[in-house]
């Protein structure tokens, strides 16, 4: 079940849909006027997301490629209808306060995004956990935003008055501009932590079996397909450029390329090979003297600049 845990971590922290992927901004900004609303919206989305992920994954060999988007929408819409009827029956207050945003879950881009990029090309169980992880991440983010907005805009938290008597609510936080302020601040804090970890050599990306960059800043089109191809994801190694310089055992990237598990090599390797730094060999060859030549090569190869800057940091 390691895979499941990895998916949960991915959804909650590494690719948090709100703070990292910046998906589903409409409900994020609109319904988070209180912590309860945020939590309700998040959990509702989570239920729809995990169920739709599960079923789309089960149906992935049946759905033809061309009509996959309408097919996803039908699956998602069915679950949204089910959830909305349940909410109306058992939680009418929450249903009322979320209003039109419940039916709008159908077009929430997190759900469609996960269906397209994960569930459609992965087995059911990881897909289910991917949905749960993403949903938990979404709930966590919305609850955070809602808590701040409720605390500042109304002086309460989950409906309980928390602020001292003389506190006058800062009403702007209950309105639309406040949502932008709080979201921006939380993203800034999150980025600060991320950068600090990166500097300390413990980036989030290295935990689990992720690719080297976060998806928001990734320039590789179609990466998800390669990356999430069944079975390949687990064996996809974490890039460790530092190991070459120290002359350790051959890099895991090479191993994989040789064994042919993936039809195509993952992005960083490909780029390096294309740019011909390593003597145009199809497989990256280990060069002990690369640390010495590193600087020259970096100047010569502008396209791969960021990779080599990374490399330098690792060596320190």
């Amino acid at each position: 079940m390691n895979k499941a845990g990895e998916r949960l971590y991915n959804g909650l922290v590494k690719e948090n849909p709100t703070f990292v992927l910046m998906l589903g901004m409409c409900p994020t900004l609109a319904v988070t006027t209180s912590a309860m609303n945020g939590l309700g919206m998040g959990l509702t989305t989570m239920v729809v997301l995990s169920l739709s992920n599960l079923f789309i994954s089960l149906l992935r060999r049946v759905i033809p490629d061309r009509v996959r988007i309408p097919a996803f929408i039908v699956v998602i819409a069915s679950f949204v209808t089910v959830v909305q009827l349940l909410l109306e029956a058992y939680l009418p207050a929450l249903n009322k306060s979320l209003g039109v945003y419940i039916p709008l879950i159908v077009v929430n881009c997190i759900i469609l995004g996960r269906a397209e990029s994960y569930a459609y090309s992965n087995p059911p169980i990881p897909s289910l956990f991917d949905g749960i992880g993403m949903g938990l991440g979404f709930s966590f983010a919305l609850t955070c935003i809602g808590a701040f907005r409720e605390l500042l805009g109304a002086g309460k938290l989950f409906g309980a008055a928390l602020m001292p008597e003389g506190f006058e609510p800062i009403r702007i936080f209950g309105q639309a501009p406040g949502a932008f302020f709080v979201l921006a601040m939380l993203v800034a804090v999150q980025n600060a932590v991320r950068n600090r970890r990166k500097k300390a050599g413990k980036p989030y990306e290295k935990i689990g079996s992720g690719c080297s960059e976060d998806c928001m800043n990734c320039s590789d089109q179609g990466c998800t397909r390669r990356f999430y191809d069944a079975g390949a994801a687990e064996k996809k190694p974490v890039r460790q450029p530092g190991s070459t310089a120290q002359g350790k055992a051959p890099r895991p990237v090479q191993k994989q390329a040789e064994s042919g598990i993936q039809r195509k090599a993952p992005r960083p390797v490909q780029k390096q090979a294309e740019s011909g730094i390593q003597g145009k060999a199809p497989k990256p060859v280990q060069k002990p003297d690369r640390a010495v030549n590193g600087k020259k090569e970096r100047l010569a190869q502008k396209q791969t600049e960021f990779e080599y800057i990374d490399l330098d940091k690792e060596e320190k």
Binding site: E168, I170, R171, I172, F173
Partner: peptide, 10 residues
């Protein structure tokens, strides 16, 4: 404007 929206009465 921030104050005006936040504390209309004051």
């Amino acid at each position: 404007c921030f104050l005006l929206i936040s504390f209309p009465t004051a």
